[in-house]
């Protein structure tokens, strides 16, 4: 391959890693890699290492605990089916002297037929039981997920349906911004639910923070991250005070990750009670 062609292929490394090559170019590039181009392989390796840093900027969050058990249960099942990594059991060495050949007894096909029938029945029964177990397991997982979701919804509903619930609209202070929010809280229990809409995703090193103003002083309520969805609901936050008369304002700022003791960033959303 000519040097210019190699160079042209080298230019495809970045779009390849980002998955932006069309099928034809991808195939061509992969064929080029198979020629053993060390330059491109090194470049790809460097790019994979570099792009692998991006997910480290996301806020780490462990998956629900049930997933761990689900995974290891699956491994356990699979190992029962066929031990992995372990060498197959050694096949017994064939005897040097062959065993004497015995003649099959008459009518032995009855025996074979019944053995085959029995085996088929056992296989059928096992398949049926396996199917039933799988269905039950799937249902159990779905039920567990639903229970978590229901609990979250109940917490939110608990606040929204409280005997006395306050609501305040939060609006953007930036002209032209479509971001907005609402905060609902139960004055007696000082529990609140926050909903934000169209709030842009926070930079990696920042976090949104909700503040409550009382006596002209801001009090920290909670930090939160918005995801890519248009609307984000956060439950359940505890307020420093619950009485609307004492609360002058709610505000949301962008702060260094981990939160600040006092607002240091520009106010993104604000809602005054008076």
């Amino acid at each position: 391959m000519k040097t210019e062609e190699r160079h042209a292929q080298h230019e495809l490394c970045i779009p390849y890693v980002f998955g932006r090559l069309n099928p034809g170019n991808r195939k061509q590039f992969e064929a080029h890699l198979e020629t053993g181009c060390e330059q491109c392989k090194r470049e790809l390796s460097d790019l994979y290492e570099a792009t692998a840093l991006l997910p480290l900027l996301l806020k780490q969050e462990a998956p629900p605990s049930g997933l761990r058990q689900r995974l290891f249960s699956r491994l356990s099942t699979k190992r029962t089916e066929q031990p992995r990594g372990a060498k197959p059991a050694p096949t017994p060495q064939r005897e040097a002297v062959e065993a004497p050949v015995t003649k099959a007894p008459p009518h032995s096909w009855y025996l074979y037929a019944s053995m085959v029938m029995g085996a088929l029945m056992i296989v059928g029964l096992l398949l049926f039981l396996n199917d039933q177990l799988r269905t039950t397991s799937e249902l159990e997982k779905k039920l567990s997920d639903l229970q978590v979701q229901v609990q979250q919804k109940q917490d939110i509903l608990g606040i929204l349906q409280a005997y006395s619930v306050e609501m305040l609209q939060l609006v953007s202070v930036e002209a032209g911004s479509e971001a907005s929010g609402k905060i609902f809280w139960e004055p007696e229990k000082r529990r609140a639910v926050l909903q934000v809409v169209n709030l842009p995703a926070q930079p990696v090193d920042k976090q949104y923070q909700l503040w409550l103003m009382k006596d002209k002083k801001y009090f920290r309520v909670s930090e939160f991250d918005v995801n890519t969805e248009k609307s984000n609901v956060f439950a359940v936050m505890t307020l420093p005070v619950g009485d609307k008369k004492e609360i002058e304002e709610f505000a949301i700022t962008l702060e260094p990750r981990g939160g600040s003791t006092q607002p240091s960033g520009v106010i993104q959303l604000r809602g005054a009670t008076k």
Binding site: Q69, R70, F72, L75, S76, T77, L133, S137, E138
Partner: peptide, 15 residues
């Protein structure tokens, strides 16, 4: 995609 789980307590304890 469906999922498999048999809730093996023994495995959970081991891991």
């Amino acid at each position: 995609k469906g999922s498999n789980a048999d809730g093996s307590q023994q495995q959970a304890a081991m891991v």
